Amino acid sequence: MAHSCSPTDDLVEIQQLLARYAVTITKGDIDGLLAVFTSDGTYSAFGDTYPLAEFPALVEAAPKGLFLTGTPVVELDGDTATGTQPLCFVDHATHDMRIGYYSDTYARTEDGWRLRTRAMTFIRRSGAHDSGRPHAYRRGEA
């Protein structure tokens, strides 16, 4: 896909994309959240990878609260990029925190940059880094 943007323009667009992710998921705006991903986008955590079609159920089952993200480190490579973004999630009811980071891939689309893959790594009190407990979310269960 031909483009005439500078690397700085690309970085700012990706940062705004990731800000939209954090704001839409914090506000419970599922349509807005889905719009930041490519049509084949996936989210990985809890020992599994979820396609876009499963996002609404996954988000519904997840705790609600503030998704506070930091500035990502992004490596541009033409019409694709990779990145890592720190996350601090604060539960709305208890103010308990979960910390970690997202490992991402991005793709330039006709509609601009979008997330193609996002994988969560949690940082535990022990110092361990892991992708979450398998089956913390179960498909098809309410």
Rank of each mutant, 00 (worst) to 15 (best):
D48N: 01
G32H: 10
L115G: 08
A119L: 04
S39I: 02
D96M: 12
C88H: 09
R98M: 13
T109A: 07
D111Y: 00
V73R: 04
G127V: 10
S6Q: 11
H3R: 06
D79H: 02
A45T: 10
G78N: 09
V74W: 06
R118M: 15
R118H: 06
D79L: 01
A81G: 11
A128K: 09
T8H: 15
A19D: 11
H135P: 01
V59N: 12
L11M: 15
V74T: 15
S44L: 05
L34E: 07
T94I: 07
D10I: 12
S126D: 15
G65L: 05
F55D: 00
V12Y: 12
I25Q: 13
R108S: 03
A35R: 07
K27L: 15
T121M: 09
P7Q: 08
Y102P: 02
D79I: 07
R118K: 14
Y43K: 00
T121K: 10
S6I: 14
D31P: 04
P56T: 03
G140M: 05
G132H: 14
G70R: 00
D91E: 13
D9R: 01
S6A: 14
R139E: 08
V36Y: 12
V74L: 03
Y137S: 06
I123D: 08
L87W: 08
G70Q: 03
T117P: 04
A19Y: 10
